[in-house]
Design a protein around this nucleic acid. Structure first.
Lengths: 209, 209
DNA sequence: GCATAAGCGGATATGACATATCCGCATCGC
DNA sequence: GCGATGCGGATATGTCATATCCGCTTATGC
């Protein structure tokens, strides 16, 4: 959230960058955000450069490779999600908090293909990303534990179930045809209903356990 | 289910193939099944050839390209799923039939990465595949309609929801780490519970609609 | 203004990789 | 035995992302 950007491009007692260079750095970051969000992580640094209206060389001077740029771009994104999860911990109804968190986090994912790709695959294991990811899981674990304690969450559900659930909704978003669609919300609602405690589980259904 | 294989490699009044050639054809088909199942559609015809213990040239003589082999391999697979769907139509409890069908179809998918990839992406639109796919959707539509009529299925669910649901479970299967796992069954159970008619929908949950 | 360090552009080298071919040699079938 | 049929797999081809290099431009300090 800080607007202090441009202070320590690497924290290595580096010279402060010429003014136009710093501006370009921001342009690249912004282009990276947009391009990765729209086209996913398979987008090229050349793509990003072009989108930023800069040459490829410029991008490669600021960020040694795609991983470095992605790290810079997505650490921020992931931290915001972590903050959302943290806020959810404060709510009284843990199930509702969990549901609300999922909806907010997935809302972000819906608009950001790169973020979705990053969520699932263990690609790009930078320090910042890993930390943010860990924070999110920890908060989810807390949320789930509390919901279980409140008796609102289906038997057997644990924190480890949250990632797969996100992955499932993610799959709906990735379905061809309905790119900008909002239909994922309906499927989330279905899953959430399946996750509630009381609606008798598989009463006589063929799928046991 | 027919074991008549090796009759008309293309139905074009072609000569009947030398005996060893026909044997190799079967070998390639089998290798294709195994390789595509294990490594997905991105597997190379060179991979298949090696797996079959044959040269690349041999494979390319029998199947002009990967699409041709994939079509041959998966049409069969898809037809079997279609048959399962057809059988389900005969059951009394439509919801149970739908659940059973999903479980059986997804069981196949769990063991076959290529099949999963084929299900989602519009890659490889061969005639046989398209027909089988269509048959499956049609049967699903019937199943859903009947379940709705029986009042066992959640409001608003249509045949068009089945594919996304399959995609969601698929996503769980594709999750890193638990390749041969059976955990997808649990998530299917959760979704099915969410799909049942009565368990009061989103009673006070934050996700409306 | 001017010198010079800093930065820029983008053509292009590099390296992976999948696809598909070709043709000398082996094998079948008669 | 001898043609026709089929086989093998090295390799040509094409595509694509990554990353570099160096002549030119621009900012900055004097």
């Amino acid at each position: 959230m800080g607007k202090k950007a441009g202070q320590d491009p690497a924290a290595t007692g580096a010279r402060p960058l010429r003014r136009d260079a710093e501006l370009n750095r921001q342009r690249i970051l912004q282009a990276g955000r947009e391009v990765f969000a729209a086209r996913g992580l398979q987008a090229t640094l050349n793509d990003v450069a072009h989108h930023a209206g800069l040459g490829v060389g410029t991008v490669y001077r600021k960020f040694p490779d795609k991983q470095a740029l992605a790290e810079a771009v997505f650490t921020d994104e992931l931290n915001q999600i972590a903050a959302t999860a943290h806020d959810a911990l404060a709510e009284d109804d843990a199930f509702a908090a969990l549901a609300g968190f999922l909806e907010k986090a997935l809302e972000r994912a819906a608009r950001n293909r790169g973020l979705r790709e990053l969520m699932r695959h263990p690609t790009f294991e930078g320090a910042g990303l890993t930390r943010a990811r860990l924070e999110i899981t920890t908060h989810c674990e807390g949320l789930v534990a509390r919901a279980r304690a409140q008796g609102t969450l289906r038997d057997g559900v644990t924190g480890a179930d949250i990632a797969p659930i996100a992955a499932m909704i993610d799959a709906v978003m990735a379905l061809p045809g309905e790119r900008p669609s909002e239909s994922w919300r309906r499927y989330l609602a279905i899953i959430l209903d399946g996750l509630r405690a009381h609606p008798r589980h598989t009463p006589d259904g063929p799928v046991i356990r």
